[in-house]
Amino acid sequence: MLDWLTILTLRASVITVLVSVGLILVGLAVGQRVDMLPVQASINAPVYDELFRVLFSIGTMLFLGICGLLVYSLVRFRRQPEDFGDGAAIEGNLPLEIVWTAIPAVVVLFVGLYSYNIYERMGGMAPLADHSVMHAMPASDPGSDDRVWGGISTISGETADLTVDVTALQFAFIFHYPEGNITTGELHVPEGERVELRMKANDVIHAFWVPQFRIKQDIIPGQPTVLTFTANRPGTYPIICAELCGPYHGGMRTSVVVHDRGAFDQWLTKNTPPVA
């Protein structure tokens, strides 16, 4: 036999479940459709965007859920004129409180682990490619510039197809190609090949950022950093200094040009200074 209370509770549970399912569906739908990021121009970018979609889905669910609950309460439980009474004196509800501690805990744990998986796939967790340099770091070579600090690295074992030395200074980037001995202010890279940037700063901290590649790394004086990426979409993209470095920080930008292999070789030969 069902009394009223049970029916009410049942009804409430059904509504809760329906609303939650609705929220999840809306969140997923929005997350899958969202298109807010610049074009994907490196193999990194789709991986990043996958994480972004997941975060966006979860965020949408939480945000809509909480705002919905809030607005519903404000409308449903608004004070009627001339009603000076108090609401029900409910001071807590242990099971409920456990639920809303547990759900965020599970969510953030999932998000944390998932984003680590993403980071791993980007190569962020890989030990730096140049082991010898890494281990030479402490003490043995005092005061030298050889200390390499993390950035996004090559996945362990793989080596870079092209290495470029990057020097950042107020207010420019200088790219030096050891292969060919080219020095330029504009980065040129071949499509689909792994490029390793070895970056150092002359004066203050700068940062190397290409939004279309979804990568960024600070360039720190005294602590060279490594950043690798594989561009996979020919075109010209901005390189932006993202760390405040002085008055012209906003003007410290240049471009990276992604060529297909043939064009890149042409560029290389054209710009290689004749050997004297």
Partner: peptide, 10 residues
């Protein structure tokens, strides 16, 4: 989330 932050930091 580190990988997310790397793009949007600063």
């Amino acid at each position: 989330q580190v990988p997310f932050d790397i793009h949007v930091h600063d």
